[in-house]
């Protein structure tokens, strides 16, 4: 007999609770290993110390102001990757020769560790927010280009035939059929692109010791405030998780409409 797929009234929360308990368990294990001396406490701080230093970091290190700086760079970069990536993706869809010539290069760009080229960007744009934004745009634009093209190419021919049978103009065809049909894949590209942008913004802030949350981690590490450093890293991870969960929700919502 087939097993029932019913997972009970608490089934939805069980995986979440299990995930949280696993993280908690790892922290407890780490705390024990540090306290008994298996891991050196001068290199890795106690998780309890990290947790307790979180309020101090938030108040003394002006985390909110730093968040604003990082958010500003994120906002500019995120808008720029869409403004640049989507039109290029559309152009690659429209002109097949262009797609054949450039698609592999954009795929290579998506996989390239752009962050290693930070000295080049520093030379070009100086130690400034512009460097952070330009590097982040270069890091995040490729997935949006590729997914935009992929989404447009994947538009079902029958939908285009409906458009043709209704004598739709090229512009109507794009705005009313191609773009909505490609939107879920474009959004997948945006989610990937923004992920790269966030990594790049914080990473470059850390590398060039400028700006918001990345610089905070750098500052704390240079002061050898290990609990503070890890607390700041934890804070960035928390912000990232919330950011990605929101994007995933939007992506799922769009996915249901295709």
């Amino acid at each position: 007999m087939a097993k029932s797929l019913y997972i009970g009234p608490y089934g939805r929360w069980l995986p979440i609770a299990f995930g949280a308990m696993t993280v908690l368990g790892a922290f407890v294990l780490l705390e024990i290993l540090l306290r008994v001396g298996v891991i050196n406490r001068y290199i890795v701080p106690l998780p309890s110390e990290v947790l307790l230093s979180l309020p101090r970091i938030i108040v003394e290190e002006k985390v909110l102001a730093r968040c604003r700086e990082t958010a500003f760079e994120m906002l500019i970069s995120s808008a720029a990757v869409i403004a640049i990536g989507v039109p290029i993706g559309v152009a690659l869809y429209r002109y097949k020769a262009l797609r054949n010539a450039l698609e592999d290069w954009f795929a290579a760009l998506a996989a390239a560790p752009i962050v290693l080229a930070f000295p080049l960007f520093l030379v070009m744009f100086g130690r400034s927010a512009t460097t952070i934004i330009v590097m982040s745009v270069v890091s995040g634009v490729a997935p949006i280009i590729l997914k935009t093209t992929e989404g447009l190419v994947a538009t079902r021919p029958v939908l285009l035939n409906v458009g043709k049978s209704l004598k739709m103009t090229q512009s109507q065809m794009f705005w009313k059929i191609l773009l909505p049909s490609a939107l879920p894949l474009i959004f997948t590209g945006i989610r990937l692109g923004w992920t790269f942008v966030l990594i790049s913004v914080v990473g470059t802030e850390f590398l060039i010791n400028l700006g918001g949350l990345g610089q905070l981690i750098n500052d704390l590490a240079e002061r050898y405030d290990m609990p503070g450093t890890y607390a700041a890293i934890g804070f960035v991870i928390l912000v990232s998780i919330l950011f990605f969960i929101s994007l995933e929700r939007v992506e799922q919502w769009l996915g249901r409409r295709t």
Binding site: R156, V158, S165, K167, P180, S181, L183
Partner: peptide, 27 residues
């Protein structure tokens, strides 16, 4: 070319998945 007097129904499923029923029909 396509003529307004000829309305086509296709073999493949051709509704717009991002539009609800009334928005599809009113398209």
């Amino acid at each position: 070319g396509p003529h307004p007097a000829v309305g086509m129904v296709f073999q493949e499923e051709s509704t717009f998945p991002w539009r609800n029923v009334i928005e599809n029909v009113a398209f």
